[in-house]
Amino acid sequence: MTLPNGVAPFQIVEVRFKNGRKAFFNNQENLTLSIGDIVATEASPGHDVGVVTLTGELVRVQMKKKKVAVDSEEVKKDLQKSFSKGY
């Protein structure tokens, strides 16, 4: 989906984990992420690995549907790209 000129892309992504749990993460590092990319996230304790399931404006729609605010504590901060899909 293309955005109008001057509009920044939505910087939150949805990540699915092995047990089917999904969470939202702020892409503070402006990583180039696509659906299917594998990412590492901070967990308690250590790290967790998940797959990007939504990016861009679709995440905004999903967050609205689930009543999660952009500045909510439910939106996690630590996100790192691990591998690209296909590896």
Rank of each mutant, 00 (worst) to 15 (best):
Thr2Gln: 01
Thr2Glu: 10
Lys66Gly: 01
Thr55Phe: 04
Val75Arg: 10
Gly36His: 04
Glu73Thr: 02
Ile12Phe: 00
Gly86Lys: 09
Gly50Phe: 12
Lys76Cys: 06
Thr53His: 03
Val15Ser: 07
Pro45Glu: 08
Glu42Asp: 09
Ala43Tyr: 13
Met1His: 05
Thr41Glu: 11
Leu33Gln: 11
Lys76Ile: 00
Lys67Ile: 02
Arg16Gln: 15
Ser72Asp: 15
Gly20Leu: 08
Glu14Pro: 02
Val68Ala: 04
Ile35Cys: 04
Glu74Trp: 00
Asn26Gln: 13
Phe83Val: 14
Lys81His: 15
Ser84His: 10
Asn26Gly: 03
Val75Met: 10
Leu31Gly: 01
Thr41Val: 15
Thr41Asn: 12
Ser72Trp: 02
Glu73Gly: 04
Ser84Val: 03
Glu57Thr: 09
Lys67Cys: 04
Met63Asn: 08
Leu3Ser: 00
Asp37Ser: 07
Gln11Val: 02
Ala23Thr: 02
Leu79Gln: 12
Leu58Tyr: 02
Gln28Ala: 14
Leu33Thr: 12
Ile38Arg: 15
Lys64Thr: 09
His47Arg: 12
Gly56Tyr: 12
Ile12Ala: 08
Lys64Cys: 04
Val13Trp: 06
Lys77Val: 09
Gln80Cys: 10
Val51Trp: 05
Arg60Ile: 00
Lys77Ile: 04
Glu74Phe: 05
Gln28Arg: 14
Lys18Pro: 02
Val51His: 03
Lys64His: 09
Glu74Ala: 13
Pro9Asp: 10
Leu54His: 11
Leu31His: 06
Ala43Ile: 10
Val15Asn: 09
Ala69Gly: 06
Thr32His: 05
Asn5Gln: 03
Phe17Cys: 05
Leu31Asn: 01
Gly50Thr: 13
Val59Asp: 07
Leu3Val: 02
Asn27Val: 06
Arg21His: 14
Ser34His: 06
Asn27Tyr: 07
His47Tyr: 15
Lys77Asp: 03
Ile12Cys: 06
Thr32Asn: 08
Val15Gly: 06
Ala23Leu: 04
Gly20Gln: 12
Lys76Ser: 05
Gly50Lys: 13
Gly20Met: 05
Thr41Gly: 13
Ala8Phe: 03
Phe83Thr: 14
Gln11Cys: 10
Gln62Thr: 03
Gly50Asn: 14
Val13Pro: 09
Ser84Trp: 00
Leu58Cys: 03
Pro45Met: 05
Gln80Pro: 01
Val68Lys: 01
Asp78Lys: 15
Glu14Ala: 11
Ser82Ile: 15
Gly50Tyr: 12
Ser34Asp: 13
Lys77Pro: 01
Arg21Ser: 12
Leu31Cys: 03
Ile38Gly: 01
Asn26Asp: 08
Leu79Tyr: 06
Thr41Trp: 12
Asn27Cys: 07
Ala8Tyr: 04
Leu54Ser: 11
Phe24Tyr: 15
Glu14Thr: 08
Pro4Ala: 00
Ile12Tyr: 01
Gly50Ala: 10
Leu58Val: 01
